[in-house]
Design a protein around this nucleic acid. Structure first.
Lengths: 200, 200
DNA sequence: TGCTTTCTGTATTCTGGAATACAAAATGCG
DNA sequence: CGCATTTTGTATTCCAGAATACAGAAAGCA
């Protein structure tokens, strides 16, 4: 059946996503992608058709990785609703700070892409992925907030839909603020203060 | 003295900033800039040396416009501290929603630029502008929060420095969330909920 | 040992868009 | 008017980086 692939397709997608989320689509060259993934250009173009196509697939991959990580926390019934929210925030802050230690910012493919109209127009799949992920995330958050209201860890007068949007907003904000070089502890407190209307 | 400029330099910078903040540096072509500013390419290159140079100057301009708008609100002693914060949020939400009516998103040159490492590296002035503006904004916010604590409109236990960073974070988050097409009233409530730890 | 497919490596083409070059008309000023 | 400088308009150059081409070597499998 011919020589098999010597590289792992999803590993390449992960590497590509890691580059894209930091430098954005336009400022990531194909050779940069090759270097990051440890794959020759010919192989890259053979496996994925073009830079655009690779981007879409990397975005898909990025979305599923995130979804799974989130699902872990969201479904963790050992934690109260409030605790689950805190862990989610913790993850974001940790990720950003860890990335900063390595020199560059973590970035976020969603934030990057959402702020780039050109990218969204280039391929309708991009919009679909973004929208689907956003909706799923908000739904999950709503569930957590409802759970928190039941177990008493979240204010009873908190609107789940509104609360979910607030959490998402604060997370996006943190990703931007983190670029300015705010230290870990402070960033963490900001995150919690942002959710004050939920956590009381 | 030769033929004078037929266009207003700052008007061009405003137009350029308007394009950049929506489409970002890479996805804004020079002819797009010419069209937006109503100026021929030759004139553009004559007045501003290059696209890079134009970007830096547009960013500078963008910063001063924002600074002045903010200063208006921040210095308005007729309003309580809390009210001033509310007006600042209101402005952001209004701007984003107004832009959406016109089809495209408002975007934000600061958010765009801060999330683009390539852009920051291209010119040290970019970093300087970003940092200076951020510091100024945070200082102004700190002042407002202190004032609010004195006039009783803001919780006495709110830390000014932390609070300022929270406001800035929520604003950045709103700019991202707004891209997802959240309606005005909801966005407004999110903004206020984000400041709950300050406003009580 | 063939057959097939992927890999390595390098060289080449293609292309969008930034930047330059002029020539000629326009405009203000002394 | 004559000088200086900016505009208009088009045509051209230039370049980074995406994409293609292709010739072998490598690797699996029947």
């Amino acid at each position: 059946m011919g020589r098999p692939r010597s590289f792992d397709e999803t590993a390449v997608l992960d590497a590509a996503a890691a580059e894209f989320r930091v430098y954005g689509f336009a400022d990531t060259s194909t050779e940069q992608l090759c270097a990051a993934a440890g794959v020759r250009r010919s192989s890259l173009y053979n496996a994925f058709i073009s830079k655009d196509e690779l981007f879409v697939r990397a975005l898909e991959r990025y979305a599923t990785v995130f979804r799974e990580r989130r699902a872990q926390v969201v479904a963790d019934v050992r934690l109260s609703g409030a605790e689950r929210l805190r862990v989610l925030m913790e993850d974001v802050v940790g990720e950003e700070c860890a990335a900063r230690e390595q020199g560059h910012a973590a970035g976020c493919m969603f934030v990057q892409t959402r702020m780039a109209p050109g990218l969204r127009e280039r391929d309708e799949r991009v919009v679909r992925i973004l929208d689907r992920d956003q909706r799923e995330f908000l739904d999950a958050l709503e569930g957590v907030i409802r759970a928190g209201r039941l177990d008493g860890s979240i204010r009873a007068d908190a609107d789940p839909h509104e609360g979910a949007l607030l959490v998402a907003t604060v997370i996006s904000g943190l990703r931007v603020t983190a670029q300015a070089g705010v230290e870990y502890g402070l960033l963490r407190r900001i995150a919690l203060n942002g959710l004050h209307s939920l956590l009381g």
